[in-house]
Design a binder for these strands. Structure first.
Lengths: 139, 139
DNA sequence: TTTTACTGTAACGAATATTATTACAGTAAG
DNA sequence: CTTACTGTAATAATATTCGTTACAGTAAAA
């Protein structure tokens, strides 16, 4: 699984806990243990899709733009990782029935798998992820 | 997605169409467009799990050991790719609530996702994959 | 019994993909 | 006009995947 996906979840969860102020990429990067530039790349995708807004310059940063239960993990998956389930087959032998047709058969199976995964991921909104993180905290 | 998974499916589908004779790794490799050693590596996993048998020496190779509807894609996934959905998070900042707990929260979410995927993959047996490949052939 | 045709694996190298880092332009606050 | 940010391209470092070579083991067949 693409780690852009988990970085996006991580970032949004952090932003969810800082609803009143902007968070810098450096702050988020430190929490996630990655480089700030990587955070900015991932967050630029989320921004394009309207989940967050950003501001440049002093005092700038990122902030959540929607209600926490308006964003679910399937939304985030689609933005950051769509197609990640698809295996990248090398071209196989077209002379052979299996070689010639396997690729498209697998393609449709994995398409279905991704849709199915979507049904699961839709059940988790950022609100719920925040709850889960808070629960862990108490133990 | 790990390509061992699709190579395993490809190989088993080929073997399913050659129920009466042994197929060599070279033959399978040519159909799949990869190196024979890679096929042997993947097939050794399938052998360990009893889906196929193999024979060394002249006239040797691989052959399906079960009925085609006794093996489904979830079986194959588990053997070749279990955990592939889990993102490999870099260790994040333990000082931060989110950094400290996100990893385990994501872990359980992705565990659930894999189980959910399993329900979908169980619906496809090798028998059905063979049918799909044959259907493609006619068009 | 020696040759031939295979599997089984380890070891290493090549290719590819992912991630970090640097660099710098653009923006806004003070 | 300086400071503190985002945005993004380009490049370097690293990790992962995959191909290839090498060779031991096995069995059929000459």
């Amino acid at each position: 699984m693409n780690s852009d996906f988990t970085l996006a979840i991580h970032s949004l969860t952090l932003l969810a806990l800082q609803p009143d102020r902007m968070s810098t990429s450096e702050y988020i990067a430190e929490s996630a243990g990655v480089h700030p530039v990587r955070i900015r790349k991932v967050l630029s995708l989320l921004k394009k899709n309207g989940f967050i807004t950003s501001k440049e310059g002093t005092g700038g940063g990122f902030i959540f733009a929607l209600d926490l239960d308006q964003v679910n993990l399937w939304d985030i998956y689609q933005i950051t990782s769509e197609g990640a389930l698809q295996p990248k087959c090398t071209d196989s032998n077209g002379q052979c029935i299996v070689g010639a047709n396997m690729k498209s058969v697998l393609f449709s199976i994995f398409m279905g798998a991704e849709e199915h995964l979507g049904e699961y991921l839709k059940e988790y909104t950022i609100k719920e992820v925040v709850e889960l993180v808070k629960q862990k905290e108490t133990f």
